[in-house]
Design a protein around this nucleic acid. Sequence first.
DNA 1: CCGATAAGGTTCGAAACCAGACCTTATGGG
DNA 2: CCCATAAGGTCTGGTTTCGAACCTTATCGG
Lengths: 241, 241
Amino acid sequence: MTIAEHRGELADAVLRPVRGHHAFESCVERLATSIRLGIYADGSTLPPERDLADRIGVSRATLREAIAALREAGLVTTRRGRGGGTVVTFRPGEPGSAPTLARPRAELLDALDFRRIVEPGAAWAAADQDLTVAQDEMLRTALEQVSTASTKALHRQADSLLHLAIASVTGSPLLIDAVTNVQMCLHDMLDAIPVLDRNIDHSRRQHVAVVEAILAGDAAKARRTMESHCDDTAALLRGLM
Amino acid sequence: MTIAEHRGELADAVLRPVRGHHAFESCVERLATSIRLGIYADGSTLPPERDLADRIGVSRATLREAIAALREAGLVTTRRGRGGGTVVTFRPGEPGSAPTLARPRAELLDALDFRRIVEPGAAWAAADQDLTVAQDEMLRTALEQVSTASTKALHRQADSLLHLAIASVTGSPLLIDAVTNVQMCLHDMLDAIPVLDRNIDHSRRQHVAVVEAILAGDAAKARRTMESHCDDTAALLRGLM
DNA sequence: CCGATAAGGTTCGAAACCAGACCTTATGGG
DNA sequence: CCCATAAGGTCTGGTTTCGAACCTTATCGG
């Protein structure tokens, strides 16, 4: 009786596709998500192509094709010359407007489960460390944006940014990456269903509680509260899909 | 006062390399890790090249180059003809034998932090679901292998396999992937430091407690225990690096 | 007003990667 | 014994990606 009998199942764990798509596709997805999540807001200018290509880890040629795709899709416009660049021209639409889900259902449901682990973990890690003044301020600002968002679409953007901000202050690249990917999936789902005012209000209260716990350094409470938040969001999404 | 002021930090979250290395390198790493972690034990045969290439999501040509690299490194040998294939010829060395760390220190330390979140999460998720008979048996077997390993090297392999087994029974691809990557980093670190008998004994007790909690369906306890385990391992590694 | 400069636009060869067809070898079953 | 078969080994054409140099445009500062 050895573990070898179960090797097949373990092999599944490590013998998985080494990279999802082509560089070009991944590149488009990254940029489109950055824009749709509001990291690059309407009217703001993307970094120069050479910088972007370096940071995304892709050749400039590939990056340019990706930008061309975004331009095609109407998300950005590009101007030449000094002071030019690629500027965002995108205003988020109301939830429920997306006709169909971009990804397979199973992948989205998996993202919900994974989120239940990493986002509370991020809240815990964020609370369990000394925040710089800038980080403290970023969290407060992100929270305020969520509370004062005037439309559902803007609220959804601010929501994503708050979650990213929490992951960001942990300073852990792996954790930041995990939360970013999860938020991308979440965004696709939220685009496909209508959201009620009372849901927004409920999550707003949870956001306040999470940020308060983080700022107070109460790691256990931050995690617990974030767990409730994830559970509630997940229940809502699972019910409507 | 808007979130845009902090956009730079958030941009860091999403503007990261879209794929770490070339397909070839990632492929070598995956396979080498599978072998060194003991998923493919000494003497066992790898799946046929065509199957492997499909599962790793890489062309057969690229896979073959990766296998050639493994052969060069003495990890496998290859025989042609029917009934042939690529068989593993690798016996794990004692810890402390690796002269240098394969990855940058920061990456390894980050992996420890990330592990503190995902592995307890995996234990929680594993306990919080109905296990099939096969899964139940896999966990018991993996635990037994850890307890009865005759050498430190074998113990380290069995340790990794147990953690992978726990992640595996959750059935969540994202979680499995996260734990797999973390275990790869951990393996590199454990290769570089000497391990004491009393450390092994301590972690053995923790493994037993975690698996018991999972089998009993006590999610909270499974997570708590795994957290302690991760904390202890991390403290040991951080102290010796 | 005009040139240094900071951006995007273009081109080209090299390398990696892929998909598929085909060849070679050795074994195991009839 | 022998051949169908399951493996690894080889070749080829085509696509993607890269890297790096070079061109073009438009602004900002002196």
